[in-house]
């Protein structure tokens, strides 16, 4: 199981999230990525919450130049505003390992064309979820999707992994592990699953680690406590890549 840092940005500013839809700015992104790499985070996902037509171009504006982007030696995924294959091509050619698409893109021609060109492992589907009258429901923007529809579409093999984000837990730090387990059961076996939403303690990670997860996403906690990454790596046996202390000391 891997530890993934999720960074939210808008207009080239790093955001802190509280509740599901509220944000406050907290600074720029490049130094944050440098520190996360030093702390040996396993992967970085950047989600751009901007609404303009140039959201993907804004992503490149996060970095001083192309050298800053391509010298990132940690697997990097990006999501936000991707609507065309050529945008995915530009991102992957520039050093982004994987792209993140929303629930409404699970079976679109965009997903199929990216999967055909770069392989299905190059796509992560971001699936915020909640339970509506006890029925698992996924969300993309303001649209809601019944879990059966999404599950059926996911079987088309256009993606390699999903991020399940608990809307109820997002920004609050309270995770219903049983609900997470039920959401994981809806994901076909051909896909890996990461969880995000409200993760802020080692004990939460240990509870989540008992589920069939390929990764756990850390968000807000990293804004106030980056050292949380090595703490988890040292104390949770389910994290695959243990801490390389020699490498950490050299930084």
């Amino acid at each position: 199981m891997k530890l993934t840092a999720v960074l939210l940005v808008r207009n080239q500013i790093l955001l802190n999230k509280y509740n599901y839809n509220s944000y406050r700015p907290i600074g720029t992104i490049t130094e944050t990525i440098d520190r996360l790499q030093e702390l040996q985070v396993d992967e970085i996902v950047i989600l751009n919450k901007g609404h303009s037509n140039s959201v993907v171009d804004d992503f490149f504006g996060l970095f001083k130049d192309t050298n800053a982007l391509r010298s990132i030696s940690t697997p990097l995924a990006y999501g936000g505003g991707i609507s065309e294959l050529k945008q995915a091509e530009k991102l992957i050619d520039s050093g982004v390992e994987r792209i993140v698409l929303s629930a409404c893109n699970v079976s679109t021609s965009l997903a199929s064309s990216v999967a055909e060109k770069f392989g299905e492992q190059s796509i992560i589907f971001h699936l915020p979820f909640f339970f509506k009258d006890k029925e698992l429901t996924f969300k993309s923007g303001h649209r809601e999707h019944k879990s059966e529809q999404v599950t059926k579409a996911l079987r088309k093999n256009y993606g390699g992994e999903v991020i399940l984000t608990s809307i109820a837990a997002e920004g609050l730090g309270e995770i219903d592990v049983e609900q997470v387990g039920n959401a994981i059961k809806s994901i076909p076996e051909n896909l890996n699953v990461m969880y995000s939403g409200g993760v802020s303690t080692v004990s939460q990670i240990e509870s989540l680690a008992n589920l069939e997860l390929n990764g756990i996403c850390l968000g807000n906690i990293l804004n106030s406590k980056e050292i949380f990454i090595p703490i988890v790596k040292r104390s949770c046996s389910k994290i695959t890549r243990t801490l390389n202390l020699e490498s950490l000391d050299n930084d």
Binding site: R98, E120, Q121, G160, T240
Partner: peptide
């Protein structure tokens, strides 16, 4: 069966001069 996405340790008995004991 499903894409392999993440970090794995690697070991080798047949390559000399390379220590592959990391992830």
């Amino acid at each position: 069966p499903r894409p392999q996405i993440g970090w794995k340790s690697v070991s080798s008995k047949s390559l000399s001069g390379l220590t592959l004991d990391h992830f």
